[in-house]
């Protein structure tokens, strides 16, 4: 009883008390390693061209060592936005169906199917996009959109199939499980009494959703959408296979473009010289920082859903 605390602790406990936190800290170290490994590779390009030139220049020419990533940034933003715009309503509808409407057996089956959708490797999505979606867009969807909505600059130009629209649709399919499952999680935390209260006051199930459930879950759904956006920005293979890989900027969604992850995927292995590699690594670093910010913000939003 009079012994000091440390002596009474088992030697194994002391070892364990060091090993476990070290393992935890190793995870923090991984984050730092990702940052510094990218930064080190990126340094030659940043020194030669400067961050501003890299991010706002619009010409990408490895031969002349002139690197401006604007077409890739534009392509990444456009495809991700198309993805979110298509995926958000569908995944919220899906989540509402799962939590508010479906009987239990149906819910289990649909939830399992959505999990399978989430587990399909990205390159298989790309294969499907290239062989099925792109021909479909070229022959049917894009001509139809051009005919009916051609007055918008978004839907003009020849229907090529490969391009922003194809990439956006693929992204929508791929981020749908993420958004839906986070939304389901958010809806599940809502107290059942709130729903029952609305129904007891005579609201129809839809009115209960519109007046009580959705306002409650608004922040969480926003967070889910940002999480989906983060996924979409970094998605590589499927997009690379259907976007057409042209470093150009077009207003039309039918045109081929390029994204940040795609240019890294296509050029990194054959990059010539430290500046080219550096420019690509700088893009990777930018992707890393943006995805950290987005996913951090999303987590905060999803957690703070109770304080509206």
């Amino acid at each position: 009883m009079l012994l000091p605390q440390t002596d009474r602790r088992h030697i194994g406990d002391r070892v364990f008390g060091i090993v476990l936190p070290v393992l935890g800290c190793a995870l923090l170290a991984v984050a730092l390693i990702i940052f510094f490994a990218c930064a080190k590779l990126a340094l030659p390009a940043i020194e030669k061209l400067g961050v501003l030139r890299l991010l706002t220049g619009s010409d990408w020419n490895p031969v002349e060592e002139s690197f401006g990533a604007l077409p890739f940034i534009y392509g990444t933003l456009v495809t991700s936005l198309v993805g979110i715009v298509l995926a958000l309503p569908i995944s919220v509808g899906l989540a509402l169906f799962l939590t508010e409407m479906a009987p239990r057996q149906v819910r289990v089956v649909v939830a399992m199917l959505v999990q399978i959708l989430a587990g399909i490797p990205s390159v298989v999505y790309g294969l499907w996009g290239l062989m099925v979606l792109v021909p479909l867009l070229r022959s049917t969807v894009e001509p139809a959109l051009g005919r009916w909505l051609g007055f918008l600059p978004l839907f003009r130009g020849p229907p090529i199939g490969l391009g922003y629209l194809a990439a956006g649709i693929i992204l929508a399919i791929m981020i749908l499980p993420t958004i839906a499952s986070v939304t389901v999680e958010v809806l599940r935390t809502m107290p059942q009494a709130l729903r029952e209260g609305a129904l007891a006051l005579g609201a129809t199930p839809w009115e209960a959703i519109r007046l009580v459930v959705l306002p409650y879950a608004r922040r969480g759904i926003f967070g889910a959408a940002i999480l989906g956006l983060g996924r979409a920005l970094g998605e590589t293979m499927a997009v690379t296979m259907v976007i057409g890989n042209q470093p150009e900027i077009h207003a039309s969604l039918f045109s081929p473009g390029y994204t940040l992850p795609s240019v890294i995927a296509n050029e990194f292995a054959e990059a010539t010289g430290a500046v080219h590699t550096g420019a690509l690594a700088a893009l990777a670093l930018a992707l890393f920082l943006v995805s950290l910010t987005l996913s951090g913000a999303a987590r905060v939003l999803i957690r703070s859903r109770r304080l509206r």
Partner: peptide
């Protein structure tokens, strides 16, 4: 420290895989 590690794990979970490829290359 635990909260920091937990948050880092959550946030790192959505780092694009291509970025990690660049890291392994480096």
């Amino acid at each position: 420290l635990g909260s920091a590690v937990r948050f880092t794990a959550e946030v790192l979970g959505s780092v694009p895989s291509i970025v990690v490829g660049v890291v392994a290359y480096g």
